[in-house]
């Protein structure tokens, strides 16, 4: 252990006792500063500077109810909706109280079998006989809450959604194209489409264009 030349007798217990008061005092003091003042101060600052972003980027419907968070995906399964990625969260898909991925290994049979089933389902739902399926649409995300799909995965679903809603293909395709988020500064991240925002836009397209309220993040709904 550490001592340099033993020029004076080692009195370990005295050394330990001497350090007890600073240990306790500083642990308490630093806990108050970094565990109470810091998070509380940050919350107050974030609340006043970025009230929408720090409260969960919530989306409000035209009647003011919360429809979801722009950042948290929701499950969609019906033909009238754009579908997001498969989700491995908790026991139900897209469960924000139990985020997580599948953790399936890249060579595991369980993984390839699951992907084959999903690919068959995508093919059946969208009656795409010729096209190949973009990989993001048949693999589960890391969080199980991924709100995005690739532009190709969205375009693949245009015909099904348009048919189910009695809309023109072109109209739905325009809606998708308008909602492709590019890479930040053209460099960071990948082009993507937010599925929940796209579906909410669809919904308001259906109900006669009352989607002005849905242009962005809403207000915090509850105290």
């Amino acid at each position: 252990m550490p001592p340099p030349e033993a020029s004076r007798p080692l009195d370990l217990s005295a050394m330990i006792l001497r350090q007890l008061r600073p240990t306790i005092t500083l642990l308490i003091a630093l806990t108050v500063i970094t565990g109470v003042l810091y998070p509380v101060g940050m919350t107050l600052a974030a609340k006043s500077l970025f009230p929408l972003a720090s409260a969960g980027s919530l989306l409000l419907g035209s009647d003011g109810t919360v429809r979801g968070s722009l950042l948290i995906g929701q499950p969609f399964t019906g033909p009238r909706w754009f579908h997001g990625r498969p989700s491995a969260s908790g026991t139900t898909p897209y469960d924000p109280t139990a985020s997580g991925g599948s953790n399936l290994g890249p060579t595991s049979a369980a993984f390839t079998t699951l992907v084959a089933e999903r690919a068959a389902a995508v093919r059946r739902d969208n009656s795409t006989d010729t096209a190949t399926i973009p990989v993001d649409l048949v693999t589960a995300s890391a969080s199980g809450l991924d709100p995005h799909i690739s532009p190709r995965a969205a375009l693949l679903q245009v015909r099904r959604v348009a048919t189910a809603r009695g809309l023109a293909d072109e109209e739905v395709r325009r809606l998708v194209a308008a909602r492709i988020e590019p890479a930040f500064l053209g460099i960071l991240g990948r082009p993507r489409v937010n599925v929940l925002a796209l579906n909410l836009a669809l919904e308001s397209l259906d109900s006669g264009g009352a989607m002005a309220e849905l242009s962005g993040e809403g207000n915090r709904p509850q105290p």
Partner: peptide, 26 residues
């Protein structure tokens, strides 16, 4: 195992290993 999956990267989609990854990061 599933030849009909497109795993190539293009301007319209990410390729590669996407299980357990988020689309926004790639």
């Amino acid at each position: 195992a599933v030849p009909s999956i497109d795993q190539a990267t293009s301007s319209e989609q990410d390729g590669g290993s996407l299980e357990g990854k988020e689309v926004r990061f790639g």
